[in-house]
């Protein structure tokens, strides 16, 4: 089932997630390719976001779901109760559907992650903040108002700030949950460009319902429908020559 040409450090094995009586994820098995951008596509309500959130166990925070199966990240099953979840989450940056800057200044938003993991010293922190704001191509726009509240930025700037904040904890993996759905075309473009430049060094998993976006950024695509993983493979193959009938219908816009 898995494509052996890829190295992998996220491996999903027989994952099932139930919320009460609702069976949200049905027996998911996949190895996510390393240092590539994987897009999860599928109609809304198909379990894309749940799958993404199970990668960093943010499922925990909503109503207690029932989870069986494994998600193995760097050799550790993250649903093992013994796993220290904060260390695991540090390896993964998250971009949510709408940007949620923390209730503090631009500077403190980026410094937040490194600080909670014990980084001290104004000079070190200054450097990190500048470095990651540059990486998120936000530095030039905000360098004169680093200490103003982050909520005053435009929504596109906020999403780039969230990117900088996520990168600042030095993750190996970036998770994006429809990260451009609230943004204008220009901001969308800059986020996509960022993904394209980051995928050399990071494993990126992005949920999207925009096929054109998947075509623009994805190396690898997973198609989900009604909680099941229908098909996955290299982007061109899924988009241009899908093997499953359902994938074909989705890509042609027959099912949505």
């Amino acid at each position: 089932m898995s494509d052996n040409n890829f190295k992998t450090h996220i491996s999903v094995q027989n994952l099932n997630v139930h919320y009460g009586k609702n069976h949200i994820l049905k027996n998911i098995n996949i190895d996510i390719p390393d240092k590539k951008l994987t897009a999860i596509i599928g109609p809304s309500g198909c379990g894309k976001t749940t799958l993404l959130k199970s990668f960093n166990r943010l499922l925990d925070t909503s109503q207690s779901p029932m989870v069986t199966g494994k998600v193995v990240v760097n050799g550790e099953n993250i649903f093992d109760p013994k796993v220290e979840i904060t260390h695991l989450r540090k390896k993964m940056g998250l971009l949510s559907q709408r940007p949620y800057p923390l209730p503090m200044s631009i500077y403190d938003n980026v410094a937040y992650g490194p600080k909670i993991h014990g980084l001290r010293g104004k000079k070190n922190i200054d450097e990190i903040v500048e470095h990651y704001l540059r990486k998120a191509s936000l530095w030039e726009e905000v360098k004169d108002r680093l200490h103003t509240p982050a909520v005053r930025l435009s929504i596109g700037q906020q999403q780039r700030l969230c990117m900088a904040r996520g990168l600042a904890v030095e993750p190996d993996i970036i998770l994006g949950d429809e990260p451009t759905s609230a943004l204008d075309p220009h901001s969308t473009q800059s986020i996509e460009a960022m993904f394209n430049s980051l995928k050399e060094n990071y494993t990126i998993i992005v949920v999207t319902h925009i096929l054109r976006q998947a075509r623009r950024i994805a190396d690898y695509i997973m198609f989900m429908y009604m909680g099941e993983l229908i098909e996955h493979g290299p982007a061109e193959q899924i988009l241009d020559d899908p093997k499953e009938k359902m994938t074909k219908e989705y890509i042609q816009g027959i099912i949505s």
Binding site: N56, L58, T61, T86, H87, L88, R89, K90, M92, G93, L94, S96, R98, Y100, L102, P103, Y112, G113, I116, H117, C162, R165, G166, V169, L175
Partner: peptide, 11 residues
């Protein structure tokens, strides 16, 4: 989502 943002950074 705001709390999740903090948790996802490993807080």
């Amino acid at each position: 989502e705001m709390k999740d943002a903090s948790l996802s950074l490993g807080a």
